[in-house]
Design a protein around this nucleic acid. Structure first.
Lengths: 345, 345
DNA sequence: AATATAAATTTTAGCGCTAACATTACGCCG
DNA sequence: CGGCGTAATGTTAGCGCTAAAATTTATATT
């Protein structure tokens, strides 16, 4: 049970342990305590120890707001992604985290839910934290947001895709149209000829994947608009099954389907199981992103493996270098992808 | 391309637009601008408008650090969960967000990855932000962390489970042991007799689910240690298949398996598909959490539906009421669960 | 019109920390 | 042993905002 004084939020605090309390107890100035905590190598060992003891004894917790205000630096990187819950971005986030945390940076994370409006308002909100840098997903954003970011004059890394619109500052990702094209070439090589396409969410990257895929089919004289089914609804496993059902209704003769992400592909495979359609013999299915479950579904799913962790890690590393004052020779990095062939296509 | 002045981080800022710039331009005092932005009903309409214009013209972005420092309140709620990428917690987070965002609160989120150590260090880190409140997962935590939270003297809501250890402050969730027990009773009622149990991750809540399940089996004289297989490895779909394979090796006569979460259950179903074991005729399978995909896998998965969104929403509402100074009559809320019977068991 | 009351606004004083500069202590050399 | 460079510590001032108190202005009441 909570027994003690509850700080009155919204009143002038008293009784909070501050740097000067620690300073008083350890018999040095506040500034020295600050240095003992943030640049320990700059104070003598005995001071370092006395300060550590005082911090412990008093239960001192530094106040980031004060630090940020005084230091004109927040030690915070804002990360703007469509959805933290998405397994795709989770890997990216780990990559960012593994670089930021050891460097003493916090991450401020938020979801856009694939909406340009939500992205704009989220970025506005994040700017009030005065982050030292920002990592945002994708190359496309509202013009006003672009201006806001330029006005903020902080380093920005755009992640996930390269080669779409011109980047604002730094850029790390893969070419989604090339990845889509690679999948199309693979399917054609394997002998599939009546190839369908399923897409949901239809953010810019899904669109580019599908465009790249279709362009290759077109080049081979195998494109057919009737075989492409997309929706702006959020992508779910169940939706994959429904979309496949729709698509087959209009194209009973399909011999393969490219799903613009693995979730849809799972749903499509489930639908085939229910209809006793043998995959890949009667219908081949491929996905995109190569999520954890793709290796163990039946049949195992052919997909495009994207370097998610490395995208996050590289983006954060570039950010750190920029924050250290370095001028990057290569502000745009294409990390490439790998086609993971398995049993489903 | 970034053209303009890059703020030197770590130097005294100049040239940032501040409240007083807005005040000067709109011909009122800084304090009035502050009120115009934060309590608009307390200033005259014309001032409100002039301020809005000046904010627009100057591109003013408030500085949260300054606000937090001056106001002794951060408008931040720290949220400590095992893994943001987990679909389970995603729903909880949405519930929290839907209450916090309209109330003007930010969420500071972090993962413990089911580790008590990581939880401790995360909470320490979060306390440096001086959040106005904290929402943490589960009832169990390191004793030192418990003391830290008490010393911080902020409202705390522990979420996900009720009825385990005594709560620190407020508490919202379900009883995992009761939920496990309910599943066991259901399986016994359906006539299953040689029932196995699979568990991974084995955080406290998984343990309680399994314990509740086994207690009921025991009461019915159907418990058997050999039929329980658990691991502390993180739970994944693929692991579910491997664990089932192991379990069947030692217990070829099983007629049902309870998986302590849906991911494992998916893997178990896949493994059955590969082995041509008919579910549920030869082997029934049940999961826990009722994730999105559980309704459309083949066969559809019997699971325990937990009120994830409502847990988050309720927790945040209790937090808001507490921050408004209210004394809660009911600091512990059990939201209950529902057994979702489907085809797999 | 005088007074009481409420509403709108300003003034003052800091929140807790760190950048920049100032000072002191210490070792080392000629 | 004085002078000098370096390392260690201290002093000053202020980051941008808001709580609280003080003041001015508008509105109601008699």
């Amino acid at each position: 049970m909570m027994t003690t004084r509850q700080n009155q939020p919204g009143s002038r605090s008293k009784g909070r342990v501050t740097l000067s309390d620690v300073a008083r107890m350890s018999g040095v100035s506040a500034m020295t305590v600050s240095r003992a905590l943030n640049e320990p190598q700059r104070v003598s060992e005995q001071v370092r120890e006395r300060v550590a003891q005082a911090v412990d004894a008093l239960g001192y917790v530094p106040n980031r707001a004060a630090r940020s205000l005084a230091g004109n630096r927040s030690y915070t990187i804002a990360v703007v992604i469509p959805s933290v819950s998405n397994a795709v971005f989770n890997n990216v986030i780990r990559g960012i985290y593994d670089v930021c945390a050891p460097a003493g940076y916090e991450m401020l994370m938020g979801n856009t839910y694939y909406s340009v409006q939500q992205e704009s308002s989220l970025i506005s909100k994040f700017l009030t934290h005065h982050p030292d840098g920002m990592i945002v997903t994708g190359l496309d954003m509202a013009e006003s947001t672009r201006r806001q970011l330029e006005a903020a004059a902080i380093p920005v890394v755009q992640i996930m895709e390269v080669g779409g619109s011109a980047p604002l500052d730094m850029n790390v990702g893969i070419s989604h149209s090339e990845a889509g094209a690679a999948m199309a070439r693979y399917m054609l090589e394997r002998g599939y000829r009546r190839i369908g396409v399923l897409g949901a969410q239809m953010d810019y990257r899904s669109q580019r994947r599908i465009q790249g895929f279709i362009d290759v089919l077109m080049g081979a004289g195998r494109a057919d608009d009737k075989r492409v089914l997309t929706t702006s609804e959020p992508s779910t496993v169940c939706l994959g099954g429904q979309l496949l059902a729709d698509l087959l209704l209009r194209n009973p003769d399909l011999d393969a389907v490219f799903c613009c992400n693995d979730d849809l592909a799972y749903g499509a495979i489930y639908e085939c199981q229910r209809r006793h359609i043998r995959v890949p013999q009667q219908l081949a299915i491929a996905g995109f992103n190569d999520l954890e479950g793709s290796a163990c579904i039946n049949p195992s799913l052919t997909s495009i493996q994207t370097p998610l962790y490395d995208i996050g890690k590289t983006a954060a590393q570039m950010m750190m270098r920029r924050l250290a004052g370095e001028v990057l020779q290569q502000p745009v990095v294409d990390l490439g992808f790998r086609l993971q062939a398995r049993d489903s296509a």
